[in-house]
């Protein structure tokens, strides 16, 4: 049994949060540079150049890439051979979130949904747990901005809608979103599960590195089809017109009820701040 102390967890979370806020990951930078080669619109190119410049400034000045430093979202894999000393994992992650957003001079964006009063420390974090074998604790983090989250959609489709229905719903979601979610976007799609599960796997799909290929050949094909169709919409970088609206489309599929076909589309912005750590 491996013992992990609570402050190991909170310290790891502080590092994840403060690093991701101002350092765009390699996969995102690479895909933005690829987009520059593809983009044919002048204003689209101008936007992409500024986004890349922004990443350079953020890194060198240790300044947040975006002022919306998001809600703190975590996917945590808990090995069966570990024990936590000093409290629960949830407490450790929330403590790390509280301290990380303070230490990094990041914006605190959690509030009461009705009074709209700011909670003040960006807690509670949104945490999804999975239980695995072994003696590792893996914590994956993303700073999820409001603009792109607000344009995300979920639908309980009919089984008869089929693959075409899924493709159409994804493309329609991006049509409606237009400039609002700060394109170019990463599109996470959850197919199957049930109502809440489809949304969780759509979010999880965003954590896959851009440029990796879906091992499921059929899903890889659907991803490519949706990617092409989204880029044909014409929205372009920041919606000023262009052919780079999607950076990537990532799908996760899970079994569902014989009567249902839940589908969730979670949109992520180009400022895709994510990272993970294994304790």
């Amino acid at each position: 049994m491996k013992i992990i102390k609570l402050d190991q967890i909170s310290n790891a979370v502080i590092d994840l949060i403060t690093h991701a806020a101002s350092n765009l990951s390699e996969d995102v930078i690479k895909s933005l540079n690829n987009s520059l080669d593809i983009e044919i619109s002048e204003s689209g190119k101008s936007v992409l150049n500024k986004i890349i410049k922004n990443a350079e400034i953020a890194k060198s000045e240790d300044r947040p890439l975006c002022q919306d430093t998001g809600l703190a979202v975590f996917f945590v894999e808990i090995g069966s051979d570990i024990a936590i000393e000093g409290g629960t994992i949830t407490e450790g992650i929330n403590e790390g979130t509280r301290k990380g957003y303070e230490k990094g001079y990041l914006r605190k964006s959690t509030c009461d949904p009705l009074t709209r009063k700011n909670i003040g420390d960006n807690t509670p974090a949104i945490i999804h747990y999975e239980f695995t074998g072994g003696d590792k604790l893996k914590i994956s983090y993303a700073a999820k901005g409001g603009g792109s989250e607000n344009m995300s959609r979920i639908k309980m489709m009919k089984p008869s809608d089929g693959i075409q229905g899924i493709i159409d719903f994804a493309v329609e979601t991006m049509e409606i979103a237009g400039p609002n979610p700060c394109p170019p976007n990463i599109i996470g799609i959850g197919i199957g599960g049930n109502f809440e599960r489809s949304a969780i796997i759509a979010k999880k799909a965003l954590f896959r590195n851009i440029g990796t290929i879906n091992p499921d050949k059929e899903l890889a094909q659907i991803e490519q089809t949706i990617y092409n169709k989204i880029n044909k919409i014409g929205t372009g970088p920041m919606g000023f017109g262009g052919v780079c609206t999607a950076l990537a489309v990532h799908i996760i599929k899970e079994p569902c009820h014989i009567a249902s076909m839940p589908i969730a589309i979670n949109i992520e912005c180009h400022s895709h701040r994510h990272g993970s750590v294994v304790l």
Partner: peptide, 15 residues
């Protein structure tokens, strides 16, 4: 409206 005009101009242009 740049959002409408830009989109119209580049719709279908992705290869």
């Amino acid at each position: 409206d740049l959002y409408n005009e830009g989109k119209l101009k580049f719709a279908g242009k992705f290869k």
